[in-house]
């Protein structure tokens, strides 16, 4: 589950990291095959089967039926749901909303995280804990708390954001009630909330760069900017790739903050209703489980496709690490 996701929350997903390298166990000597291991796997396998495999298969079957939460049973309707989905403009609007959100939130989530990590790594040691705390603390807040705080800050008139805008002589913005700004407002909130996670990943990577690399470069007369572009950035390439992919997958699962900050309405003109938001509505408001399952599979396919790219990156890293 997305830690979020940050559901936007970027975690829980597999990603790359150097494999532990210590005393490599001698693999060759085969162990005696026995059934003991099977018993150990059983509890996890049972949960896996009941709560992951079953809903997946059942969902696929349901997508070919007219199953409804309003009545028991279901009739097979062939491809009707799938055909309806392809012609349903709300499906495409929600997918588009999700993609736009991903496109506007990912660059700041990566760039600001990198800036924070560089500053923390560079600042005096005594300051480190304060910066880490400030940047990372929002990540620990439950989404509802984040949403409450930001809804309050986005209030027209007496909200803090508009208060600062007016103090600076700028015009107020109707953040959550204007269909042109609502998604951006949610993206800003998401950046504030989840950037701390990416920051930690970058910081760990930066601290893994041995200082002698920089010392050698300095001896060769490389200036700070050159050291940054020629050493730091290239050495962070893998981390950056990892963060970008984690972030994209997390953003595709956007729901929580968009739902709460629009009070479940999807925002003006549904401008803030992401794909999962529409699945949720079709299933739990419209009660059409069959139809919602079909849309689920469309989103599912998109996410798995993106994850596979990530997975490839991961396995390649496993080989070289």
């Amino acid at each position: 589950m997305s830690p979020s996701t940050a559901t936007g929350r970027a975690a829980g997903a597999p990603a790359a990291a150097p494999a532990p390298r210590p005393a490599r166990p001698a693999r060759p000597g085969r162990r005696r095959a026995s059934l003991a291991g099977l018993w150990f796997v059983l509890p996890f396998a049972a949960l896996f089967a009941v709560f992951l495999v079953w809903p997946m298969l059942a969902g696929l079957w349901t997508s070919f039926t007219d199953r409804s939460l309003a009545s028991p049973g279901a009739d097979f309707v062939g491809l009707a749901n799938w055909r309806e989905m392809l012609g349903d403009s709300a499906v495409w609007q929600s997918l588009w909303t999700t993609l736009v959100f991903t496109a506007i939130s990912t660059p700041p989530l990566v760039a600001i995280a990198l800036a924070m990590a560089l500053l923390t790594n560079r600042a005096a040691a005594g300051l480190g804990w304060f910066l880490r705390l400030s940047y990372f603390a929002p990540f620990l807040l439950p989404v509802a708390v984040v949403a409450l705080i930001w809804e309050w800050m986005y209030q027209p008139g007496f909200g803090m954001v508009n208060g600062l805008l007016t103090a600076a002589g700028l015009a107020e913005v109707a953040w959550l009630t204007d269909q042109n700004t609502v998604l951006a407002a949610i993206a800003i909130t998401t950046v504030w909330w989840t950037v701390g996670f990416n920051f930690l990943l970058y910081l760990a990577a930066l601290q893994g760069i041995p200082s002698y690399v920089y010392e050698a470069a300095a001896l060769d007369g490389a200036g700070p900017w050159q050291r940054f572009t020629r050493i730091t950035l290239p050495l962070l390439r893998r981390t950056t790739g990892l963060i970008v992919l984690l972030q994209i997958v997390a953003s595709l699962k956007l729901f929580d903050q968009a739902y709460i900050m629009t009070n479940g309405s999807g925002g003006p003109g549904y401008a803030a209703r992401p794909a999962i938001g529409y699945i949720f509505e079709a299933g739990f408001t419209g009660l059409r489980v069959g139809y919602a399952s079909a849309i689920s599979y469309l989103l599912f396919a998109v996410i798995v496709a993106v994850s596979l790219v990530q997975f490839r990156l991961f396995s390649r890293k496993g080989e070289t690490a």
Partner: peptide
């Protein structure tokens, strides 16, 4: 992604 399977 468990979130996508929420309805089933």
């Amino acid at each position: 992604p468990p979130q996508a399977l929420i309805v089933p």
